[in-house]
Structure formats: C-alpha cells, structure tokens
C-alpha cells in the first residue's frame, strides 16, 4: 500500500508547476529601485520535509527527479546544476537528522540552512563554469536572501499540515509497509 507516495509525487508536481507559471505573476521583480530575483523552491521545501520527517530514500529520489526536470526544462547554460545541488543538500540534511527526534525549531532551522546551501551550491557551480560573474555578496542581497524569505514563509505555512499528515502516514501506513516488506523478503 503505497498510495501516499503517489499523492506526494502529485503534490510535488503541482508545486513544481506553480513555481514557474504562477509565482512570476505574484512576486515583484524589484523592491523600491533595487532589482531582485525571488525564486520559489516550493517543491524543494516539501522534499526537504519528506527527507527530514518521513523517508530519506524517497526524498533523494524525488530530489533527483525534480532537479533533473528543472534542469531539462530551463536549459540555458548547463545541465545538472539543480540535480546535483538538490540531491546533495537533501542527502546531507536527512543524514544529519536521521534517528533523532526533530523538534520544530530544528526542522525549520535545517530547512533554512538547506535553502541557503542549495542557492549557494547552484551559484557556486555557475561561478565554477564561468557562467555568471556577479559577486557572492551581490548574490546574497539580491537573490539568496529574498529567496530564503519567501521559501521560509512557505515552509512555516505548511509546517503544521505536513507534520500532521506525515504522523498519520507513519502511524497507519508505514507499519503495514514494514510488514509487507517482511513478508516479501525471506
């Protein structure tokens, strides 16, 4: 019984679509006369929640799939920057927090760290391949901080519903899944 996984994939797909088609209409391109790029990483935030609270392997698979999808869809300079950064960040953060009880401040704190790390990984890769030559400080003020702000608002907004749904999944579905797994393997 893995219906919840299908549901998670579907939710991620919808979030992924909204990032590039709905959010550009809602976000400002500049505040005052300061140009800034606010990127919505909603699918990535949900993947982080899954990695921290639910299922590490599933989360890494999702990071791989959606990172690659993003790279292929918006291929401008290079393939693989998003795939690499999403996978690495999801892996490291979910490995660090495995086997620990994650309280709300650890959870949201690690998501904050992950988003900044992800942004700077992508930026670092672009700098490495000489695609961009803006300074990291400029990037922080005009892209990384506004992006972090938006995504943390989103992450805090979905914190409660996500935690409750995940708790239900763990309580009702995961034990059954474990039994199925035992029955399958000798």
């Amino acid at each position: 019984m893995i219906w919840y996984k299908h549901l998670l994939w579907l939710t991620l797909w919808v979030l992924f679509l909204l990032e590039s088609s709905l959010m550009p209409w809602l976000l400002p391109g500049s505040i005052g006369d300061m140009e800034m790029t606010i990127a919505a990483h909603f699918a990535f935030v949900l993947i982080l929640y899954i990695g921290i609270y639910l299922n590490r392997r599933l989360a890494i698979g999702m990071a791989l799939a959606f990172g690659l999808l993003h790279d292929v869809l918006f291929y401008g300079h290079v393939l693989g920057a998003y795939t690499f950064s999403m996978c690495l960040t999801t892996y490291v953060i979910s490995m660090l927090l495995r086997d620990t009880h994650v309280s709300w401040y650890t959870g949201l704190g690690s998501i904050t760290l992950s988003i900044v790390a992800f942004d700077y990984l992508v930026f670092g890769l672009y700098t490495l391949f000489q695609i961009t030559s803006v300074s990291p400080w400029w990037y922080l003020m005009h892209a990384a901080l506004p992006t972090l702000l938006l995504n943390m608002i989103f992450a805090s907004a979905i914190y409660y519903p996500v935690i409750q749904i995940f708790a239900r999944i763990e309580k009702f579905v995961a034990p059954q899944e474990a039994e199925d797994y035992k029955a399958e393997s000798p």
């Binding site: 590039s20 550009p24 869809l73 291929y75 401008g76 300079h77 672009y126």
Partner: peptide
C-alpha cells in the same frame, strides 16, 4: 510566454 525561470544566473523563459 508559458513559463519563467526565477533564477538570477539562468534567466530563461519558455
């Protein structure tokens, strides 16, 4: 235009 990528170093739209 059908989609816009919000990324300051990879400004691509479809």
């Amino acid at each position: 235009v059908v989609a816009v990528n919000q990324d300051s170093s990879n400004n691509v739209f479809k």
